[in-house]
Amino acid sequence: MTGQDTDMFSEHYNFAYLDEQTKRMIRRAILKAIAVPGYQVPFASREMPMPYGWGTGGVQVTAAVIGSDDVLKMIDQGSDDTTNAVALRGFFIKTTGVKATTKTSQATIIQTRHRIPEEPLTENQTLVYQVPIPEPLRKLEPRETETRKMHALEEYGLMHVKLYEDIAKYGEIATTYAYPVLVNDRYVMDPSPIPKFDNPKMHEMAALQLFGAGREKRIYAVPPYTKVESLDFQDYPFEIQRFEEPCALCGAENVYLDEVILDDKGGRMYVCSDSDYCEERREQGHLGHMAANPIAEPENSGPRA
């Protein structure tokens, strides 16, 4: 329970920053959300010591569920080392003293922005998503009173209007992230801006999935082993992104890859977006075609180096 980071734990804060009453209020919202999968539960979102764009909804959810023996992993676009992930991890280490990890399998709580880890999650884990805009119908119907009614009455035709427009305009469903899903045959839900590649992972996931939107003051959830279907048409079925080549570093196939620009002459490579997964594979001896010489010259290295 006490990791190497405990010395940074500050006694000046209540455990996990929020006061106990606030945490109880958030937990009540979370329980309600779990009871009605996919339904957006309003909650009294608090000011957090970070800007909204940093995932204050996810932070409040994590703060409400984290215990002193949890192990926390914090990812942003699949990586544990972006400024955002580092800052939020530091925040929880400082306010809870819990152990942090970059290893998916060792974490009990994973807070994420924009990705679901490649490694399948287990019943002992909770995945907390940071959500900017929780309302999947928002772009089509800006009136909140109307979208609430649509959810209540299960009037989701408009969602398909959007997909119809995609096909009419682009010949396919062009939505590639925040791709809408139907949860438990009832509520249409925005899965947050994860790539649609990750959508199938939500379906029947063993881990509890919690979603927090700070600015919009909404929490929603997908309990373990719940049906999550991506919306589509019979003749234009949902499809995930496909990649031509395996990861250049670890050789992984059927994972989500990021494009890394190597130089200004069009040189590029595709590597795992999930950096922990990639590292683990390399440790196990899997090598991609560029693993021997990964990003040779530092000045040519891509943004992820």
Binding site: V161, Y164, E165, A168
Partner: peptide, 27 residues
């Protein structure tokens, strides 16, 4: 009308609202 979606989607909306899920048929 929904002024910002195509004529086809304007006509198709009610069909989709009552469960039509075949793009080709709706079109």
């Amino acid at each position: 009308l929904r002024m910002s979606v195509s004529a086809g989607a304007n006509v198709g909306e009610r069909l989709m609202a009552i469960g039509a899920r075949h793009y080709g048929d709706i079109r």
